[in-house]
Amino acid sequence: MTVLPKDIPGDSLKVTVGTANGKPGDTVTVPVTFADVAKMKNVGTCNFYLGYDASLLEVVSVDAGPIVKNAAVNFSSSASNGTISFLFLDNTITDELITADGVFANIKFKLKSVTAKTTTPVTFKDGGAFGDGTMSKIASVTKTNGSVTIDP
């Protein structure tokens, strides 16, 4: 049996954390987006972790974005102690894959008090994996961190 590389060099799934701005007490939304989904033969499963400074940001909610089908079954998240974990699994293993680019999740943060303008990162942590529509590992994932700026 011969195994051929399935990824064209330079191609990767792009996962990007967005940015937001606000004043202390505001609730802002930071999107997590996927790009080049079709090039990577869709997404059938993924789990990953984001870190944030809990002294500056309070997670209000984490909701599935419009590219997630049947989110009540296929999407899960949790947030505590400065870490947000995400889990997606197409429970049907074929019919509810992520097949389009767009917003995977929206994180709502309540901004805490600061004395001066502060930009705090929302960054990928170690761990996690992504699988394509056949549940094979997506070897190349380009992750881009985001941030939230609090301006009193």
Rank of each mutant, 00 (worst) to 15 (best):
G82W: 15
E58H: 08
T83F: 15
T29N: 14
S140V: 14
V17I: 10
D11L: 09
G51F: 08
L56P: 07
I98Y: 00
D126I: 15
L50E: 08
I93P: 02
G65F: 13
G82P: 15
I67L: 12
V17W: 06
G44R: 01
T92Q: 00
K23A: 12
A54F: 13
G133T: 02
T94A: 04
E96Q: 14
T134A: 05
F124R: 04
S113I: 07
S80C: 05
G51W: 08
N106P: 01
L50K: 05
P121I: 05
P66C: 13
L89H: 02
S136L: 04
D36P: 13
Y52N: 09
T94E: 01
T16S: 12
V30F: 12
V73C: 12
T123L: 06
F86C: 03
I8Q: 10
M40I: 11
L57R: 05
V37N: 12
A129E: 06
K117N: 06
V60A: 10
V28T: 11
K112D: 02
K14M: 10
F124H: 04
T120H: 06
T115K: 07
V114T: 07
N70F: 06
D7L: 12
D126S: 15
V30D: 09
N70W: 04
G133W: 06
L57K: 10
A38W: 08
L87V: 01
F124K: 07
K39F: 14
K69I: 13
T19L: 12
K117T: 04
M40D: 08
S12I: 12
V37H: 11
S12M: 08
L97F: 00
L87A: 00
D90F: 02
I93T: 02
G131F: 00
N74V: 01
V62I: 13
C46I: 01
V59H: 08
I150N: 14
S140F: 05
Y49D: 00
L87S: 13
T119N: 04
F88P: 00
D126Y: 15
E58T: 09
V148D: 01
S140A: 07
F75Q: 07
G133C: 07
V122K: 00
N47F: 01
T123G: 07
M40V: 08
F86K: 03
S55Q: 07
T99D: 04
A139F: 14
S140Y: 05
K108A: 05
I8H: 07
G25S: 09
L89F: 02
L50M: 09
L50T: 11
V37Q: 14
V17G: 12
K6W: 08
K41G: 11
D101K: 06
G51C: 08
D101C: 06
K125E: 04
M135A: 00
N106W: 01
C46D: 03
I138T: 05
L4K: 10
D7I: 10
F86Y: 04
G22R: 08
S147W: 09
V17H: 11
S78T: 06
N81H: 15
G44T: 01
P121M: 04
L56Q: 10
V30K: 08
L97H: 14
V103F: 06
N47I: 02
F124G: 01
V122R: 00
T115M: 05
D90E: 03
D36R: 13
V62K: 10
A38S: 12
A129D: 00
K110F: 02
T19Q: 12
N106I: 04
F130G: 00
M40A: 08
A54I: 13
I98P: 01
A38Q: 11
V43F: 07
P152D: 04
N81P: 15
T92L: 02
L111D: 00
A71I: 11
G102Y: 00
K137Q: 01
D90S: 00
G146M: 04
I67Y: 12
K108C: 04
S85K: 01
S140G: 12
A129M: 00
D95N: 05
G22V: 13
K69W: 12
D63C: 09
T115R: 06
A64D: 14
P152S: 10
V60K: 11
G10V: 10
T134K: 11
T99P: 05
D7R: 14
V15Q: 05
T19F: 10
K108N: 03
T29R: 09
S78W: 15
T144K: 09
F124M: 01
G82M: 15
S61L: 11
D151H: 15
I67K: 09
F34R: 00
L87P: 03
I150Y: 14
V3R: 11
V114A: 07
A79V: 15
